[in-house]
Nucleic acid binder design. Sequence first.
DNA 1: AAAAACGTTTCATAATACGAAACACTGTTT
DNA 2: AAACAGTGTTTCGTATTATGAAACGTTTTT
Lengths: 256, 256
Amino acid sequence: MKDVNKDLNLSVIKAFRLLDVYLNDKQEWGVRELAKKAGYNKTTTYRLLSTLESLDIVQKNGDDKYILGLKLFELGNLVSIHKSLRNYSRIPLENIAKEIKETVHFGVLSNNRILYLNKAESPLGLKVSTQIGSYQEAYCTALGKVLLAYSSKNLISDYFKNVKLEAHTSNTITSAKDLLIELKQIREKEYALDMEELELGLICIAIPVFNKNKEVVASISVSGPSSRFKSENIASYLSIIKKGASEIETRMSDYN
Amino acid sequence: MKDVNKDLNLSVIKAFRLLDVYLNDKQEWGVRELAKKAGYNKTTTYRLLSTLESLDIVQKNGDDKYILGLKLFELGNLVSIHKSLRNYSRIPLENIAKEIKETVHFGVLSNNRILYLNKAESPLGLKVSTQIGSYQEAYCTALGKVLLAYSSKNLISDYFKNVKLEAHTSNTITSAKDLLIELKQIREKEYALDMEELELGLICIAIPVFNKNKEVVASISVSGPSSRFKSENIASYLSIIKKGASEIETRMSDYN
DNA sequence: AAAAACGTTTCATAATACGAAACACTGTTT
DNA sequence: AAACAGTGTTTCGTATTATGAAACGTTTTT
């Protein structure tokens, strides 16, 4: 903790590291337990937690255990760009899910990964389910490939510098050359497929969502098990998703 | 900033104050602008923002303006206590809204106020709409009065010490004595009404949601314009909301 | 009854945050 | 064209703050 490239507030970084890394793994933590896991001193951890508690960022859960607090929930809902995207996407996503009967996801690109902003789940028992606010690799998801396909050349070259294309299944695209070809095809077809590239048995189809300046700001995907996802359905799925996407685009432009 | 009652990390407090108070008011801030508003030194503010930026808690929006970042959204979604409440309430709330055709809210008590955890909006044009994650006073809302009614005596006496009962309309209950009588009646009737106490023309009805230990953990309300909200509807509304509440209670107990 | 765990407090010391001033840059006014 | 008025950013000596070993008060386990 000596060589920081910039002059930053170390205790702020420590505080968020507690929140981000460690309070994620588990529901509740004791002071010593968390200190050990974080590699901080017991007293330091206690002081940080006390500080965060005074701000309602964490709170105590009965017997001296710390859990994430309500203020954090409140702050999360303030994130304006995504707040609006989430609001405007909700009803269209639900309509798509109702019509197709598969889970619908809505996400943006953030730090080279997909951030799931919203979803509408399939009414069926066997379905895909993802945590809102969680991340997934972009190169092996339909959502991610669409967003990469419409990104600037700079962003894409950065992407290849920073991201290692690891195989999740035998279908995962693991070479930069192949991925570039795929992205080109996506731009031409105006939709992306994920043919069991992230998980065996899981197929997705995704299209871009544009803002009023014709820039891609998000994407929508439909995900389902390969047993239900037949190639003859693609055309009808696409027309339903595109209807939903244009609904979101209309809602956004009405407010901006 | 000299007399702190405990030994807390001041820079952590400052960082969250930037997020909480100031990044809420506006969409984007310059460094000097935010420093002036927060009463911090320009350099301090810059350092705090740089720190938060390195953590993706804030991000830059084009021309050197800071906005809330994605990590905050992600962290907000990790808040476990309410994550489950939110998940379990979604479908029941939507069913209630569909049946009654009025907006349904779901909230908990936090720091003497109502925190809106979830909602399902009325399908009609004229409707009540609230921001998830936002707060409202408890004493002049049906949601809040239900939660106060089922709170411990200690919490209620604390409530009266810390909260000033201000009139929002001519119907607002502004005396502690009257509010205590109201809370007693709510416990007897097992539901609360808000008869234009927060806003003229706005009526709400709310009931409690219990956990498996028969403690009240949240409440559900239906809100609508006085033009549609007739006293003869109360009985049928109540039976629909109670059905939804017991659905939520079942879902919660299945998982805990 | 002893031991081992917990959260919490203390306090001298080492490390960090602080902020005035200077810098680099952009756009506006004279 | 030159001076000015705005930005965000960097520097660096100093004042403030965070640090952590040790001790404390409880509770739980042995």
